[in-house]
């Protein structure tokens, strides 16, 4: 029972991270109807940057945890957003009217490029940082198993919930959100109404990258180790989360993330940790086969 609760907490934390990355997939998919294949790598870039910034802050003597964390978040979000913007500008915008396969391939090229760029510039070795927020609460011992709730876990869950609320507000209540939803429905018509479609798409990529940046920073703080290859698997899992929840739906992405996080956490604890990734991939295939519109998504009507 104790272990069950512990896995629930771990799964929730992991799920929150996947959910944040999945939000980026879902938003970009919503607006251009395409998967941003480089999104997982954007998240990895952010995590690597977080290591750099935290090391830099440590060297500069800024060690107050809330301050250091805040500076890191802001700086990493900013730089990651620039990366997000560049990905769109280079790999997607020139191919806006090209056949569908073209932007897919250029985005995969971008993903390969980013991963190898980081490997070359930052090195292939795992980057460890010392724990920024050690410790946590002991929630008590059940059946001889002490349940821990780390401060980092609280932080991740709180930040994720706050961001989900913020983004739901952004999309449903603001002028940007309306423009974004308009582009989603009919890009040509939106352009005719005098809305700068290219800019709206760029902003969406930047916002998605910003969310991935938050996820990247938090994973760095939570696990304390990152390397250049974390984007690939995290990307697929977050994508699975987005599809599971119903691509295009913000709460869906979050729900999907939580489910994936739980599955992974319980699978590792009770079944076989080696096959936890296989479990996610199989789930992805099953969802796409039987419910491609996801849990909270709307079914797509084929336009003829």
């Amino acid at each position: 029972m104790g272990q069950l609760i512990q896995q629930l907490i771990n799964g929730l934390t992991l799920g929150a991270v996947y959910g944040l990355i999945a939000l980026g997939y879902t938003m970009v998919y919503g607006i251009i109807g395409m998967i941003n294949f480089a999104h997982g790598d954007i998240y990895m870039v952010a995590a690597i940057m977080a290591v750099t910034v935290l090391t830099l802050l440590g060297a500069a003597g800024i060690t107050a945890v809330p301050l250091a964390l805040l500076i890191t978040l802001v700086v990493v979000i900013l730089f990651t957003a620039i990366y997000g913007w560049s990905v769109e500008r280079v790999a997607y915008r020139p191919l806006r009217n090209a056949p569908r396969l073209a932007p897919l391939i250029s985005a995969i090229g971008m993903s390969i490029f980013l991963q190898n760029m980081v490997q070359l510039t930052q090195g292939a070795r795992v980057k460890p940082i010392h724990a920024l927020l050690p410790g946590g609460f002991e929630l008590g011992t059940i059946d001889g198993f002490t349940v821990h709730l780390a401060y980092t876990q609280i932080m991740i869950i709180v930040v994720t919930v706050a961001l989900l609320v913020l983004f739901t507000w952004l999309i449903t209540r603001t002028s940007f959100g309306r423009q974004q939803r308009a582009c989603e429905q009919d890009r040509t018509m939106t352009a005719l109404l005098g809305i700068n479609v290219d800019r709206t798409i760029s902003y969406t990529f930047m916002l998605g990258a910003g969310l991935a940046a938050v996820a990247g920073v938090m994973v760095t703080v939570y696990y304390g180790v990152v390397d250049f290859s974390i984007g690939f698997v995290a990307g697929i899992k977050a994508f699975t989360a987005a599809v599971l929840g119903g691509i295009g739906s913000l709460p869906g992405a979050m729900l999907g993330g939580l489910i994936i996080g739980m599955i992974e956490s319980f699978w590792s604890a009770y079944l076989s940790p080696e096959y936890k990734d296989v479990a996610t991939f199989v789930l992805l295939i099953l969802v796409l086969m039987f419910r491609p519109s996801g849990l909270l998504g709307r079914p797509e009507v084929e336009k003829v």
Binding site: V90, A91, P94, L95, A98, A102, P103, I105, S106, I108, G109, M110, S111, I112, F113, L114, Q115, N116
Partner: peptide
């Protein structure tokens, strides 16, 4: 990676 992007564009 770079070549895949450039060729597509």
């Amino acid at each position: 990676g770079a070549a895949m992007i450039l060729i597509m564009v």
